[in-house]
């Protein structure tokens, strides 16, 4: 089964860019990503630039409306995702618990919808 792990963080708690803490943080993400690849469970994943770079798009009555910022103002922002292929929810949650942001942020684990192949 495939699961998406949506990674949420409070950006005000993140270490300053180019600081030794940020480098150590990056190292931790690389380590766990490598671990997922070695275990053969990683389907994909990306880190995102900050929410201040986000643009939200809506089409209303034919009009395309853009607005600055993420669609919902929350303290924790979506900062990246992984897609894993694992046997069950327990395994997906065990991977989520290993992520470097688990002690400070939150990880939402969602099953990926299976679209039946056209026959």
């Amino acid at each position: 089964m495939q699961y998406m792990l949506l990674l949420y963080d409070d950006p005000s708690a993140a270490p300053a860019p180019d600081s030794p803490e940020a480098a150590a943080d990056f190292e931790r993400w690389m380590t766990v990503t490598q671990e997922m690849q070695d275990a053969g469970v990683m389907v994909g994943g990306e880190a995102l630039l900050g929410a201040e770079t986000a643009t939200t798009v809506r089409v209303r009555e034919g009009d395309t409306l853009l607005s600055d910022g993420p669609f919902a103002e929350t303290k924790e922002h979506l900062g990246g995702y992984y897609v894993l292929d694992v046997p069950d929810l327990d395994t997906a949650c065990a991977w989520a618990a290993k992520l470097p942001n688990a002690p400070t942020g939150s990880i939402e684990v969602r099953p990926v919808m299976e679209i039946p192949a056209p026959t």
């Binding site: 929810l89 327990d90 997906a92 099953p111």
Partner: peptide, 13 residues
Amino acid sequence: AAGIPYRVPGDED
């Protein structure tokens, strides 16, 4: 839908 497993958890959990 979420794949909650039907088993007794392993020793660790």
